[in-house]
Nucleic acid binder design. Structure first.
Length: 207
DNA sequence: TGCCAGGCCCTCTTTAGGGCCTT
């Protein structure tokens, strides 16, 4: 189960929990050997106003949030769902800070690292027009599963992108498998040093 | 109601600046 990860995505009222932004929706998909085998998704009511811009961006309205279960219940269920499995998110620094902030409100702490699909994509696809999730989904031929900026659709498409990147690594470097640890280490490799890194990896670890 | 940040990476770099990406 070395390759099993949970791909997560938050929709929020803004860009930073330090500035008062809260989560409005969260989703997680369990990705096992390239297949989504479990899903979790919920809107959540954190008792905050959703700005008009965010309503238009996400389609998540104040009325939808008012009728959603309390954030503390959603986050507790989310924490049970993901357990200790390693996490993946697109632009992980964003989702990580909201995850940590929302968990702290229910007196829980994250127990695993969050790998970043955007950072890996920047290594693997330096010629993509840009590295937004929507652009990479088109560029890599990932199936569009729903509306962008809704948590479950974005988590599923990020999972599809993660799978495609594993496949491209397998093809390009003739590996038998792509351990999650390798995907994490790719994040810290300079973009122009990927080929050298992979050759070194194969020598140390075998194909 | 309207507006907001921060980590990462690249390069014309490292005594820094600016673009990208997330909502």
């Amino acid at each position: 189960m070395d390759s099993t990860v949970v791909v997560i995505d938050f929709e929020t009222t803004g860009l930073s929990p330090d500035e008062g932004a809260r989560a409005t929706e969260i989703a997680a998909v369990v990705l096992d050997r390239g297949r989504v085998v479990a899903r979790y998704q919920s809107l959540m009511n954190a008792g905050v106003h959703v700005p008009r811009f965010i309503e238009e961006l996400t389609g998540i309205t104040n009325a939808m949030v008012r009728e959603a279960p309390p954030a503390k219940e959603v986050m507790a269920a989310f924490a049970r769902f993901v357990g200790d499995l390693p996490l993946v998110a697109h632009n992980a620094s964003f989702d990580r800070k909201f995850l940590d902030a929302e968990l702290a409100r229910i007196r829980q702490r994250r127990r695993q690292e969050v790998a970043c699909s955007m950072r890996v994509a920047r290594r693997l696809y330096p010629d993509a027009p840009n590295h937004k999730l929507g652009t990479l989904v088109d560029y890599a031929g990932v199936r569009v599963t729903g509306r962008h900026h809704r948590a479950l659709a974005d988590a599923e498409m990020a999972a599809g992108l993660w799978t495609r990147m594993e496949e491209d690594l397998l093809r390009a470097y003739r590996l038998r498998q792509v351990p999650h640890e390798l995907m994490c280490r790719l994040q810290t490799v300079r973009r122009d040093g990927l080929a050298d890194f992979m050759e070194g990896y194969k020598r140390r670890c075998g194909p």
